[in-house]
Structures are given as C-alpha cells and as structure tokens.
Design a protein around this nucleic acid. Structure first.
Length: 416
RNA sequence: GUGAGUGUAGCUCAAUGGUAGAGUGUCGGAUUGUGGAUCCGAUCGUUGCGGGUUCGAAUCCCGUCACUCACCCCA
C-alpha cells in the first residue's frame, strides 16, 4: 500500500473534534476583545533570518527544528516555529506604533517545528497567543498572566498551575550566568555528561536534569532570584504583588527557563498534570529587547503562546453539536422539484435542510434522514402536493401531522 | 537525534508455525407512503512494506516505514 498519508507529525481535524476547535477559537476572539486586543495575521513563512535573529541562533528551535527551504529565487525562507518574531516584524514594518492604540495583539495559527511527535506535540501545531507592546509596567505582566489563567478557567480547565520566575535582564543575567558557571564547574565531576556540556552552553538547563546526582548538585547552585539587579527585583516584586491583588495563585519556580533567547524579566508557564510528558499548556514572558534587536524602537513588550492541541486534550468530549436538521423527503422522483424548492425556502429561513437526491423510495430516504440525525422529516407526495400541504414527522417521538404550506413557517417557529 | 511498544476488514479486536475469523459498519432483502429494533443474505484483506528461515509464516529472524509513548526540547 503506497497510499499517500499525512506527513509525520501532522493530522486531520474533523467532526466531532472540530467542534471543540470552533468553540475554542470563538472563545479566544470573544475573551481577548475585553482587554482591547486586536487580531493580527502574519505570513506562515518568513525570511529565515527573522527567526535566527529573533529567537536566538543558538537555541534548539533554530538549530534543529526549523522547516527551512529556498524558494525559486534562492531566498532562505522558514515556516514559522512561533509567532512573536513575526508580530514584532509586522508592527515595525507597518509602523503600527504610530497608527494603532493600544498596541495589543492576539493571533491564532499554525506553527511548525521539526520535532519528534508524541502526546501533545506535533510538527504542525496550532498556537494562540497575545503580545502587548510599549508598556513595561509590572501590572501588565500580571494582567497578561491573569488573562491566561482566567481564560483557561472559563473554557473549563481547572487542573493547572501557573509557574513564575524572573530571568533577569542584560544588566544582571550575564553576571549571574558567570556565577552559575563557576559554581557548576566546581562540581563538574558529579554532573552527567549532558549537564557538563550545558555549563558552557546554557547552564540554566542544568536545573532541568532529572538524574538524582545532578538534581542534588542543582539544589546547591545559586539562583537567579538572588542575583537580580535592583530594577528587575523591584519589577518582579510588583508583578507578584499585583497577582495577589488579582487573586491569581502562582508558584515561584526559580529554575523556570524559556527556550527562546529573547525573554527578559518575567517568565511564566502554565502546566497541567493531565498532559503526559508535554505538560506545558502555555508559556511566555517579557521581551524588552527584541523590538530593538529587530530594528524597531527601544520598546518593551510581553506576551505568551498557548498550545491549542494541548488545550483541546483537556476539553470534555462534546455531543456532536449538529444543528437540528430538517429532512425533505419525496415519495416519487416526480416531486423532486417541489422538494428542492422547499429546501431552498427553508434554508432561506435559516434552517439546516438536507434532502437525498438519489432517494429511490421513502424507506431509503427515512433511513438517510435517520443517519443525518434529522429532527423532522417533511414529506411530499401526491396527496400533499394536491392539497397544498406537507406532512411533518417528528423523528424522535414519531408523531406525524399534515399541515398546509401556509402554516408551515408558523409551525416551524413554534415547534422547531 | 536516542529508546521502548504496536502494525490483521472502513472501525474495535481474535487466530499454538498448518485453509485468516468475530463483532460492528456498509450494501441488499423481509410486497408497493415511513427510519432506529429484530431476522435473512451479500460485501469486506496483497496480515504496513521488503527480504530471510521453513514442506509451510499473520505468527520466528533481519531490514524498512508508520503510529504510540518516553528521553531531549517545547506550546
């Protein structure tokens, strides 16, 4: 069998699951309007350089996970692995600082990463996210986190945890990393080979190692929280205080690291125990230097991105929410024209209507009506046509009545 | 990139190395204006793919691909 299948890590979404996606998308649009966010749609692919400069050329994502290709003019393009860099690019390119206010955006769309698929992780996956520009207030950080938690609660997710950290800024992080490297190197012999490599690369990752020996070493390593500069420390304190005003509970996690280089100060993640190994539902933070690095003004920003497949995994299976359907049946092909016209009229009135063009006899058509879960079947036959009426059978309780066509609309209004 | 498990009918799954099956679904029928239930009948497969061992392979071995889960990383 060499039939063509969906590429590894991609999937088809259809009924009944598609209903969850509609619900989730609608909820996002509705919820974020309340905070004056506006939707932004950016291209699915960008110049590769946007991501290597934006996300960081040394990150795992840029190093090994990008879908990069050359187009026919030899431009290096990349399917977006995340959307923040694109949004920043769009805001700069279109001078949105000058024209839109407030500078708050949300997006919904596909991202692409060449990862090995497993539960909750795909090569093409959907994220929604928000970005707030031009405000360095700690209250904005808190509001963004509140909205994330509140939104997830409103769509029915309870079992989640907000984890919070400050990853410092260009003033304090380099100093901290030096201290950390030094401390790690002092205990290098006790670390696994993986962690030894991390010392020079990204020493923060040592905190993630699950080996007991490494965890023991990690417990003794200095924490960023003790090495923040005055500004970062004040900002972080204000963020936590605001969260408590807002009644948002959180867990401080001094080991929380983000996989993208652009984060400064606030970093956060919402995790869930129900997801298996890929337990991050949503992650984000502040990125006060990215806009300038991508050629824009010196402007603060904060945002997050959420994995929609992972959210969908948490949503209860819905009843197939098919709207109540009207089925138009005709006893003999000679009445097909009447049936078609009736369907047109009913659809014009707003009802979902189905009829079976290959219906050979009523028995078959009723079977079809049953399969499409029709609520009512409208029957046209010689009897009805001649008297200018229609028979209506309630498919649930099997009651059947005959009414004149003039009364049909009225009847539907009452009984549909 | 690394590791483990699983690949049999559209779907869920059986079959000690000896003729590939069941349930479900689909289609047809149980007399001509009526579905679901029941009954009867039909349809359904290169056992993921390619090699090897064997008189004989769905079954054992090797390879490969896909799916699932985990490592890694992340949403």
């Amino acid at each position: 069998m060499n039939e063509i299948k969906a590429p590894k890590g991609t999937r088809d979404i259809f009924a009944p699951e598609i209903q969850k996606w509609h619900n989730l998308e609608n909820a996002i649009h509705a919820y974020y309007k309340k905070f004056l966010y506006q939707e932004i749609r950016t291209p699915i692919f960008e110049h590769s350089e946007l991501f290597s400069r934006g996300i960081g050329s040394e990150t795992e994502i840029v190093q090994k996970e990008m879908y990069t290709f050359s187009d026919k003019s030899d431009r290096s393009l990349t399917l977006r692995p995340e959307n923040t860099a694109s949004v920043v690019r769009a805001v700069i390119e279109n001078n949105l600082f000058e024209t839109l206010s407030p500078l708050r955006f949300y997006y919904i769309g596909s991202m692409f990463r060449y990862d090995k698929p497993q539960k909750g992780r795909y090569r093409q996956f959907q994220q929604f996210g928000v970005e707030v520009f031009a405000d360095d207030s700690p209250q904005v950080d808190a509001e963004v986190m509140f909205s994330a938690v509140d939104f997830l609660k409103k769509i029915g997710i309870e079992a989640m945890q907000l984890e919070l950290n400050s990853v410092g800024c260009p003033q304090c992080r380099p100093d901290y990393l030096q201290v950390l490297r030094k401390a790690a190197r002092a205990q290098e012999s006790r670390l696994c080979s993986d962690c030894r490599r991390k010392i020079d690369g990204n020493p923060l990752r040592i905190f993630d190692c699950k080996l007991p020996a490494c965890a023991e070493v990690a417990a003794s390593l200095p924490l960023i929280s003790d090495h923040l500069c005055g500004e970062c420390r004040d900002h972080f304190a204000a963020v936590r205080e605001t969260l408590s005003w807002m009644n948002v509970s959180f867990q401080l996690n001094p080991r929380l690291v983000r996989g993208l280089d652009y984060y400064t100060k606030t970093a956060f993640e919402i995790t869930s125990g129900q997801l298996g190994a890929q337990n991050a539902l949503l992650g984000g933070g502040r990125y006060n230097n990215l806009i300038q690095e991508l050629g824009g003004p010196d402007m603060a920003a904060i945002g997050f991105a959420a994995g929609m497949e992972r959210i969908i995994l948490h949503l209860e299976q819905l009843e197939p929410a098919r709207p109540k359907t009207l089925f138009v049946a005709y006893e003999d092909p000679q009445w097909l024209a009447h049936a078609v016209q009736m369907a047109q009229v009913l659809r014009e009135e707003g009802y979902p209507v189905y009829l079976d063009y290959q219906g050979k006899n009523l028995k078959k058509q009723f079977k079809k009506a049953d399969r499409v879960a029709a609520a009512f079947t409208l029957i046209l036959a010689e009897n009805e046509i001649q008297s200018g009426s229609v028979s209506i059978k309630n498919m649930v309780n099997q009651e059947q009545i005959k009414i004149s066509l003039k009364e049909l609309n009225e009847w539907l209004k009452k009984n549909y």
